[in-house]
């Protein structure tokens, strides 16, 4: 188990967003979190990344407890994420966005960069090279100098994932990676995710609504409804599970 969540409960004010949740993600797995809107999936992400502090329970990553570890430190321990509504650094180029992910791999101090000492140059050269290699893997190396806000939606998503990979994670959290994409973009994306997963030895935890995508990608899924776990198992079993179907139907009725 690379990630274990034990008895996680999250309350906002009086509202329980997540209720006593237990699950674990095995190393090398692609694990899907699904469920109707407002089921608590993104909240769960925010707990794992340290943006929220759970009311109760523990998160264990790589045999270490994450309680009290700050979000930026959690990244250094090997958990990277993307956001539901792509959040690139809009004033920066694609390359710069990815270089931000390499921040900690460039090994020079503030004074070394002010005085432009050799380590500044050698490290900048190193991470720029690595960033370009990463962009090539995503097939967007030619866009390196383009401003990130002028990219197509699909390419923005790629940059966001590349940027997350730049932090050298062991666990990658993807929040609705296929949202807003057309079928061919989705196809392209799932191939890339599978490719990088093997290449970087990643474990992936993803939130997704597109059941076809989930079916195709995930080894295992967890279905959440109103903060409670209603199913855990193979994706193909999930879609025929009574509770799951009921939860989704309920969601459609409300919507």
């Amino acid at each position: 188990m690379i990630l274990e969540l034990k008895n996680i409960t999250m309350q906002f004010g009086g509202i329980t967003a997540i209720d006593d949740l237990n699950f674990g993600v095995k190393t090398g797995e692609i694990y899907g979190l699904i469920g109707p809107n407002g089921a608590g999936k993104t909240t769960l992400f925010n707990i794992v990344t340290g943006n929220y502090t759970q009311t109760k329970g523990t998160v264990v990553f790589n045999h270490e407890e994450l309680s009290g570890v700050k979000p930026n430190e959690i990244v250094l321990r090997g958990i990277a994420r993307t956001f539901q509504n792509i959040r690139l650094f809009k004033s920066m180029s694609v390359l710069e966005n990815v270089l931000i992910g390499f921040h900690h791999q460039a090994n020079y101090t503030y004074f070394e960069s002010i005085l432009r000492l050799p380590r500044h140059f050698s490290n900048e050269k190193k991470i720029k090279k690595e960033a370009m290699i990463l962009l090539e893997k995503f097939g967007i190396a030619d866009l390196a100098d383009t401003n990130s806000s002028s990219l197509s939606y699909g390419n923005q998503r790629k940059v966001e994932i590349a940027r997350a990979l730049a932090t050298n994670p062991r666990l990658l959290l993807l929040d609705e990676p296929a949202a807003g994409m057309n079928p061919s973009e989705t196809e392209d994306l799932s191939n890339i995710i599978k490719k990088i997963k093997t290449e970087f030895g990643l474990t992936i935890l993803l939130i997704e609504h597109d059941m076809k995508f989930v079916n195709q990608m995930c080894d295992k899924v967890l279905v959440l409804d109103y903060g409670e776990q209603i199913f855990e198992g193979k994706p193909s079993d999930a879609i025929v599970d009574e509770k799951v179907v009921a939860a989704y139907l309920g969601d459609f009725e409300h919507a």
Partner: peptide
């Protein structure tokens, strides 16, 4: 430098900068 880039990242989106380990 990487520090200046990080400053701009903080300006553009502080949460995303944190999510990059900054």
């Amino acid at each position: 430098s990487k520090y200046g880039r990080a400053m701009k990242a903080v300006r553009d989106d502080e949460d995303a900068a944190t999510a990059m380990g900054i």
